[in-house]
């Protein structure tokens, strides 16, 4: 097997006496969609915050392998460099857009570092240098591409806060993609979407993964999304990994079922059947 894109080893995060994540290790491979699932409070978002530099992990190593083979230790990079040098982008569980700025401006802010270099740290930009104008034109083209792709192009000049909820979620993904990441971390992208929007989202994520060489790490509660699009599933419960494997295997893992339903082991078999029917219904609804 090739070197994984992201390798999390013995990650532990403690808040005072509370251990949010305990000795977690998993891998996310290039060109794959890896899903991180688990019941509420399992520590999924905390894992994200460690990977994207919002928390400094108490223990453990997070290694990201660049295309040129260079290995970066994410927990040692300052917060903003994880995006710029490490090329990891993320979205947030409760959407964080620049609400008073237009969609286009949101996507240009995402290309800050590229444009900043092109503007000669603003000095050339103030005098209207041509090189900056060219760079800005390219940046707008990239933004247009992602607005088309997410179906938001007609609203490019509206304020982001004016968008309906589902569009805001897609805009956040478009904004993260404008940083041209190797790894895109999505925190519950399907939360609050209606079934149609959820299906569109699946297509968008698959296309991001296949066409743009961006691997995806996904937190999601909606099992239909997870089961349909992910190549690999990691299950957390109380900050520990309880299962890891392809979606079908994980789906039938009794430990996972028990964690989700909180049932005794001997009841697992009985509930398994129920789950299958529920899942089938859910799939049917989604269609």
């Amino acid at each position: 097997m090739t070197t994984p894109l992201l390798k999390v080893e013995h990650l532990t995060m403690r808040f005072g006496g509370l251990t949010a994540i305990g000795d977690l290790s998993f891998e996310a491979h290039s060109g794959q969609i890896t899903a991180l699932i688990g019941p509420n409070g399992a520590g999924k978002t905390t894992v994200f915050n460690c990977i994207t530099g919002f928390y400094k992990p108490t223990e453990g190593m997070i290694t990201l392998t660049q295309p040129d083979g260079q290995k970066l230790l994410l927990e040692r990079l300052p917060g903003h460099d994880i995006n710029w040098k490490g090329r990891v982008a993320r979205t947030f569980q409760n959407i964080r857009l620049f609400g008073g700025m237009t969609l286009l401006e949101n996507l240009l802010v995402a290309q800050h570092n590229v444009l900043m270099n092109a503007s000669g740290l603003s000095i050339l930009g103030i005098f209207g240098a041509r090189s900056y104008k060219r760079a800005e034109k390219e940046a707008i083209e990239l933004a247009e591409y992602w607005l088309e792709k997410t179906g938001l192009i007609d609203r490019a000049d509206d304020a982001a806060a004016d968008l309906p909820y589902g569009d805001q979620r897609r805009l956040e993904i478009a904004r993260a993609m404008c940083t041209q990441p190797l790894l895109l971390c999505l925190d519950e992208p399907a939360a609050g979407l209606n079934p149609r929007e959820s299906l569109l989202l699946n297509d968008l994520l698959i296309s991001i993964c296949r066409e743009h060489k961006t691997s995806i790490l996904l937190i999601e509660h909606d099992m239909s999304v997870v089961m349909q699009i992910s190549d690999h599933v990691v299950v957390l419960d109380y900050g520990r990994k309880i299962a890891d494997g392809p979606p079908d295997a994980v789906k039938n893992d009794p430990k996972v079922i028990a964690a989700y339903l909180g049932v005794e082991d001997d009841e697992v078999e009985k509930t398994e059947a129920e789950i299958a029917t529920i899942a089938a219904h859910a799939k049917g609804d989604a269609r």
């Binding site: 903003h80 995006n83 993320r90 802010v109 800050h112 900043m116 930009g125």
Partner: peptide, 27 residues
Amino acid sequence: RLRRLPVGRAWEALREDEIACRSLGIN
């Protein structure tokens, strides 16, 4: 001029949401 440059947009973005700025690689 600065408002139309990346640094000016970053200022306004900072006013809107500092955490999102950090996640987009803005120092």
